[in-house]
């Protein structure tokens, strides 16, 4: 029972981290129709920039400065890269962001090398916030939860309650009308792209110390972000939140409990073959939930695509 609570907290941290990445991606997609393959690379850049800044000015300045740099870089990529490629259609845009992801990884390796960076949790947060039945919850995790929730609330407020948010929402559905009303839609696009990548940057800054800062960190997280926004529904902020939390909890619980396929199958009344080496489905019999935890989100995505192709909260067909 205690462990359930601990797992709920752990899953929440994982989910919220995923949310910060997917929120930006889903906004960018719904606005420009661009699947930004380089999104996770901006997350990695956030971690590296923050590490570099933290060497001189400490962790907190890194948290402030790095996302801004990443956001400016992102806006620059939109203004001078994507906007030019846009006129040739979606495929060149995809290829452009894909190439960008590779480029960023190479540049990161070129500057910082291939080693793990000793990017650590700041001293002030290096203590145990509280513990539940011997499982300590580090203060840094609580800090991560607060940051992500604060960002979600701010984002929701800006998008639904402010004038800027209204223009963005309008530009999402009727860009031409908004343009005709005298708003600078390309500027809105650039802003959204910048803010989206900056969000990924924030995620990198706060995830770097716990999930390790190394050149492979973008690849490890890259595909799961796409899964999240597809499950949540492309373009939906609430969808991104729900899907992220869902994925966070599913994977955490699957890894924490050794649910064996054997138990499920015998529970369903299937007879266990006596000689396993002869059985065609022997691999199926020996699977445990921690082994397949990381592919469960993909399974969920397939199911969602079959039964609700526009995602949990999506309003239109993907």
């Amino acid at each position: 029972m205690d462990l359930i609570l601990v797992n709920l907290i752990d899953g929440l941290v994982t989910g919220l981290l995923l949310f910060m990445l997917s929120a930006g991606l889903t906004l960018i997609f719904s606005m420009m129709g661009v699947l930004n393959f380089a999104h996770a690379s901006f997350y990695m850049l956030g971690a590296y920039f923050a590490y570099q800044v933290s060497l001189f000015l400490g962790f907190w300045m890194g948290l402030l400065v790095a996302p801004v740099i990443v956001g400016i870089l992102g806006a620059g990529v939109e203004r001078y890269g994507l906007r030019r490629v846009h006129q040739y259609g979606h495929v060149p845009e995809l290829i452009f962001t894909f190439g960008l992801a590779l480029l960023i990884e190479e540049v990161v390796q070129f500057i910082w090398g291939k080693d793990q960076m000793p990017y650590a949790v700041p001293e002030i947060l290096q203590f145990t916030a509280f513990s539940i039945a011997g499982n300590s919850i580090p203060a840094y995790k609580i800090f991560m939860i607060f940051i992500s929730v604060a960002i979600f609330i701010t984002l929701l407020y800006v998008l639904t309650r402010t004038r800027v948010g209204m223009i963005i929402q309008a530009a999402l559905s009727y860009p031409r009308t908004v343009e005709a009303l005298g708003h600078n839609v390309p500027l809105v696009f650039m802003g959204v792209f910048g803010v989206g990548t900056a969000l990924a940057g924030v995620a990198g800054v706060i995830a770097g110390p716990v999930l390790a800062t190394f050149p492979g960190m973008a690849v490890v997280l890259g595909s799961i972000v796409f899964v999240t926004i597809v499950i949540g529904g492309l373009g939906s902020l609430w969808g991104a939140l729900v899907a992220s939390l869902l994925i966070g909890w599913i994977t955490t619980f699957a890894k924490s409990y050794n649910v064996r396929m054997e138990d499920i199958l015998t529970g369903l009344g299937v007879q266990k073959p006596v000689d396993m080496s002869e059985s065609l489905i022997r691999d199926l019999w020996t699977i445990t939930s921690p082994q397949i935890a990381d592919i469960l989100p993909y399974l969920l995505m397939v199911l969602i695509l079959v039964f609700r192709p526009y995602g949990l909260f999506g309003k239109r067909d993907a």
Binding site: T14, A133, G134, N135, V220, I224, T252, K255, D294
Partner: peptide, 21 residues
């Protein structure tokens, strides 16, 4: 006594929890 996927685990926290508990 358990195995996890090689090079694919993003966050080891759930495993750590099991070890501690």
């Amino acid at each position: 006594n358990e195995l996890h996927p090689i090079g694919k685990v993003k966050d080891f926290t759930p495993y750590a929890r099991k070890i501690v508990s």
